[in-house]
Simulated scan of single mutants.
Amino acid sequence: MAKIGVFFGSSTGNTRKIAKFIKRAFDDELMAKPLNVNRVSVEEFASYQYLILGTPTLGSGELPGLSSDCETESWEEFLGKIEDLDFTGKTVALFGLGDQVGYPDEFVDAMMEIYDFVEERGANIVGAWPTDGYEFEHSESVLDDKFVGLALDQDNQSALTEERLAAWLKLISSDFSLPL
């Protein structure tokens, strides 16, 4: 079994594309196929010691889910299913997608909801990312002057995505025992 699980929520497919890009950077023995949280069991999710979790931010800073007008369940519902899960001993890295021009006051806010959720349950969270190079007014996902994970803007800065992903994967590689 692969030792790294990649899980995402998505509304338009952009977060899925990023998860697939992350997977392509590794062999099948190291990283499992990325899975949408609306298609995974709690047991499968819990079986990984290393987790990479991705989410878009919808509307006014919301996680994807039924209350944010997604057609299917997503992070909002899945977090309710795993609220009793102990993350002690698990290493978690986060990535979030947002639109810093259209939503400058809520840029990648949903990433913080997942951060808070796993942090409260004992996770070791890695992969904080600098805010340099972004143009936004406010983000709930900034802690100690860094994003709590990799922030991506596919609407306005898609040309920077591949470079940012490569640098972020290199950043988290030692925490995940990755050969980068």
Rank of each mutant, 00 (worst) to 15 (best):
A25E: 15
R24D: 15
D84R: 11
E137I: 00
V6W: 11
G54L: 12
D116E: 15
T15Q: 13
A159M: 12
S174A: 09
N156L: 13
E163M: 10
D116W: 12
Q157D: 06
G102M: 04
E162C: 08
A151M: 07
Q49G: 10
I114H: 09
T72D: 07
W129H: 11
V108D: 07
E106I: 09
R121F: 06
P56W: 14
E29Q: 11
G89C: 05
E119T: 13
I4K: 01
E73F: 08
D84C: 11
E43F: 01
N156Y: 10
R121V: 03
F176Y: 02
E29C: 08
T91E: 11
S10V: 04
L169Q: 08
T91V: 13
I82W: 01
D144G: 02
G80R: 08
D132C: 08
K23D: 15
S41M: 00
G98V: 06
S177Q: 11
G65S: 01
T57V: 08
I4V: 15
E43V: 05
S67C: 05
E120L: 13
L30G: 07
E76A: 00
S139G: 09
K33C: 11
L152D: 08
G80H: 01
L180I: 14
G122N: 07
G149N: 04
S173V: 06
E29Y: 06
F95G: 00
T161R: 10
F107W: 03
L160S: 08
P34A: 01
F26D: 04
D132H: 07
H138Q: 11
L150N: 10
L51D: 11
P130Q: 02
G59S: 03
